[in-house]
């Protein structure tokens, strides 16, 4: 039984992490197994399980075991479209600044 009275806090905590935001963006497109997600984010199975657990506790993701595979899909507390966009935007922003940092390192000395 999930209690939603604390869901706002837990969803904020769940969304504070860029990997978890990206997991939601990915699951919005299609369901995925934990090992799919671990592979996509170049992460250990254990590491990804922890992220999924936090998202599941927040009601943002549900999981179901089919045979040996645990499948994840967006949970009952779906993010409204706008919040989904904010999560996506935030991930893009961080990825962009990472690229900018890499670019500046790579071109050190080339540009005045």
């Amino acid at each position: 039984m999930v209690h939603y009275s604390t869901s706002l806090d837990s969803s904020f905590a769940a969304l504070a992490d860029p990997v978890r935001r990206d997991v939601l963006v990915r699951l919005a497109r299609r369901d995925a197994s934990i090992s799919d997600l671990a592979g996509a984010f170049e992460m250990t199975l254990t590491g990804m399980k922890k992220h999924v657990q936090v998202l599941e506790d927040a009601g943002l993701v549900t999981t179901e075991k089919v045979g040996r595979v645990r499948w994840c899909r967006l949970g009952p507390r779906r993010l409204e479209k706008e919040n989904e966009w904010i999560a996506k935007y935030q991930s893009m922003l961080e990825a962009r600044y990472d690229r900018l940092g890499e670019f500046l390192e790579r071109t050190r000395g080339e540009h005045p």
């Binding site: 900018l100 940092g101 500046l104 050190r108 540009h111």
Partner: peptide, 12 residues
Amino acid sequence: FNAPRERVWKAM
């Protein structure tokens, strides 16, 4: 960023 402000400005 490990770069002077002018370089960061130009990159952006």
